[in-house]
C-alpha cells in the first residue's frame, strides 16, 4: 500500500474516525454523545473495511455494467468487504437504534442523560 494512495488515506481516516468515536464513548458523559461516539466508531470501521477491500483502478462489483460481464474477477475490487460493510451498516443501524431507545427510556426514568447518574447497580 502506498502512502497517499486513496486506500491508504481512507484507511487512516477510518482509523481516525474510529479513534474519535472511542474517545467520545470513553469521555463524554452524555448518553447521546456516547451513542454518537458509537456511530463514529462504526463508521470508522466501515471505512476501514471498504479501504481494505479496495483494489486500485478497479471498479465496483456491480455486474450490470457491460464491461464487467467478462473476466469479472480482474476488473472489480474485492466484493466481499463490500458485502460485509453493507451487513455491518445494517447491524450498526440496529444497534444505534436500540441504544437510542435505551437512551429514551433512561431519560424517561431519571430525566437525565448523564451516564454517571445510572450507577444504582454496583459492586
Amino acid at each position: 500500500m502506498q502512502l497517499f494512495s486513496i486506500e491508504y488515506i481512507s484507511l487512516v481516516v477510518g482509523f481516525l474516525i474510529l479513534l474519535i468515536g472511542i474517545w467520545g464513548i470513553l469521555t463524554r458523559k452524555n448518553i447521546l454523545k456516547m451513542v454518537i461516539g458509537f456511530s463514529l466508531f462504526d463508521t470508522g470501521t466501515h471505512i476501514i473495511i471498504v479501504a481494505l477491500g479496495y483494489v486500485r483502478n478497479k471498479t465496483a462489483p456491480i455486474l450490470d455494467q457491460a464491461n464487467l460481464q467478462t473476466n469479472t474477477a480482474q476488473k472489480i475490487v474485492d466484493p466481499v468487504p463490500q458485502a460485509l460493510v453493507l451487513t455491518a451498516i445494517v447491524i450498526g443501524l440496529g444497534v444505534t437504534a436500540l441504544m437510542l431507545v435505551y437512551a429514551m427510556k433512561l431519560h424517561n426514568e431519571k430525566k437525565t442523560l448523564n451516564i454517571e447518574k445510572y450507577n444504582d447497580l454496583k459492586w
Binding site: M34, V95, M99, Y102, L106, Y118, D120, L121
Partner: peptide, 9 residues
C-alpha cells in the same frame, strides 16, 4: 434498563 444500556455499550 441501565444495566441493559451498559450491556449494549
Amino acid at each position: 434498563i441501565a444495566a441493559g444500556f451498559k450491556y449494549m455499550l
